[in-house]
Amino acid sequence: MNRRADGTSHGPAAGPVYGLADASAGDAANGAEPVLLIRDVTKVYGEGEATVRALRGVSLTVERGDYVAIMGASGSGKSTLMNIIGCLDVPTTGTYLLGGVDVGVLDEVRLARVRNRRIGFVFQSFNLIPRMSALANVELPLAYGGVRAAERRLRALAALGLVGLSDRVGHQPNELSGGQQQRVAVARALVTSPTLLLADEPTGALDSTSTGDVLAIFDRLSLSGRTIVVITHEHDVAAHAKRVIRLMDGRIVEDRRQAPVDGPPPLAGHRPPTEAMSER
C-alpha cells in the first residue's frame, strides 16, 4: 500500500479534518472540472426473462460544492445509481468521470484507491464493522490508505469530534444507538476528507432527533465546501439540499435547484449543530 500518498493527497499540513473547507486542495482538476460527470449510464440486472432495467440512460453533472438530493419512488433506481457513483458497482453502458478521471478504465488497485481517497460512503444500514470500537472503525479507511498509526488516531478522533461523539470512541457498534452508529459511519466517510460524500438514505433508519443531528452535520459540511449527494424519501431531508433530482423508472424526470452551488445550503443555521451535539 502506498505510504507516499499519505500527506500529499489528503491536503495541506492544516490536516484534512480542519481542512474541510478546502476539499478541492490537492485535486489535479481545479474548479472548472465537475466532481461528477455521468453520461448515458444504463444498468441492466439479470438476463432473459428476469431482466431488470434499473437505469435507462442517466446523465448528470455535479459541480464542486454542490449538495444534491436524489428522490424517487421505491425501485426507481436511486441506489443503483448511487452504487455506480460510489464505484461499488459498474454500469452496463455509459461513462462515469470522477474529478475528470474515467473510472471505467481503472484497474482494481486504482479503484480501491479511488474508493479510499475520493469517496466517502454512508449506508442506510450504517455498515460498521462489528466488534471493533468506533475509533477503530473510523481509523479503518486511513489504515487502508497507509496513514501511520499516530496520525490516524488524531484524525479519527477529530472526525468523531466533528460528529459529536468524542465521548463514545471506545464503544463498539452494538453499544451505540442507531443515530450514534450513523454518526460514526459519517465520521468514517469523512475521515479521509474525500472529494465526494455519498449517502444512501442516511436517515432512513433514524428517528427525527437523530435525523436532525445527521442533517446538521451535512449542512455544516456543505457550508465548508464539501460536495454531497444524498438519497432520500423524505421531503424534509431534501429541503436541506441545494439541488433536488427526481428519478422515475431509471430516468431523471426532474432537476430542481433550491440554492446556488457556491452559496450556503438553504436550511443551514435553522438548527445550530452545537445544539444537536449537546443532546447526547
Partner: peptide, 14 residues
C-alpha cells in the same frame, strides 16, 4: 464485512 472493507477502499491485496 469484506464488502464494507472494500467499500471504504481496502485493496484486494489487503
Amino acid at each position: 464485512e469484506i464488502g464494507i472493507r472494500k467499500a471504504i477502499g481496502a485493496p484486494r491485496g489487503a
